[in-house]
């Protein structure tokens, strides 16, 4: 199915999405990758607040290129999600509802997604120039010292993703591969 959804999400939205659905996202999402995740978990471990209210939000695993003069943002495609796996279950427990990235997720992440109705979306790895055109505003909201890894609030219009793992644990990577596999 093809859907257009608004971010932040709700449980009603996430529970309706199925692995394989193609989605365009409108609204705002947060950019965060390795170093920002490490810092967010440190804040939670110290009993402090996160730099933004994570309830129902989508995190996009991305570290964009600098914007050229006149542009909003440089190339901004997804980075490999599995590096965030160690931190993700805790963020899901705190309300995170969606993640955009590329590549495999751990069992712990998928279990947390099932328990808290979160969704994992895939964007096209390697299409950073194209994807950047769907980002209409960018604001660094935390950890500016991390450069490309700072947390950014991004406004997106018709941002194209595919549901990879839905909140029931169905996984498009397995489904797709099994359909075309001819070797053991």
């Amino acid at each position: 199915m093809k859907y257009s959804i608004r971010a932040p999400l709700t449980k009603e939205i996430t529970c309706n999405l199925k692995a394989g659905d193609t989605i365009s996202i409108n609204g705002y999402i947060y950019a965060a990758r390795d170093a920002a995740h490490k810092k967010m978990i440190e804040l939670l471990d110290e009993g402090k607040e996160l730099p933004f209210d994570i309830m129902d939000q989508i995190i996009y695993y991305v570290g964009p290129c600098p914007a050229k003069p006149g542009a909003i943002i440089g190339s901004a495609g997804p980075t490999t999600s599995s590096r965030m796996d160690a931190y993700t279950p805790k963020l899901i427990q705190h309300g995170l509802k969606g993640m955009i990235g590329k590549g495999l997720r751990s069992k712990e992440v998928i279990d947390a997604m099932k328990a808290y109705s979160a969704v994992y979306f895939g964007a096209i790895g390697g299409a950073g120039a194209l994807i950047a055109q769907k980002i209409v505003s960018e604001e660094i909201i935390a950890f500016p010292e991390l450069g490309a890894e700072a947390i950014r609030k991004l406004t997106v219009e018709d941002f194209p993703v595919t549901v990879i793992i839905d909140c029931h644990g169905n996984n498009l990577y397995d489904i797709g591969k099994n359909k075309f596999r001819k070797i053991n």
Binding site: V62, G63, P64, C65, K68, A71, G74, S75, A76, G77, T79, I124, G126, A127, G128, A129, L130, A132, Q133
Partner: peptide, 14 residues
């Protein structure tokens, strides 16, 4: 994506 990167002179991938 490659054609756009070439035309706008931006990185193919971030």
């Amino acid at each position: 994506n490659a054609l756009m990167a070439k035309e706008r002179k931006i990185a193919i991938c971030q």
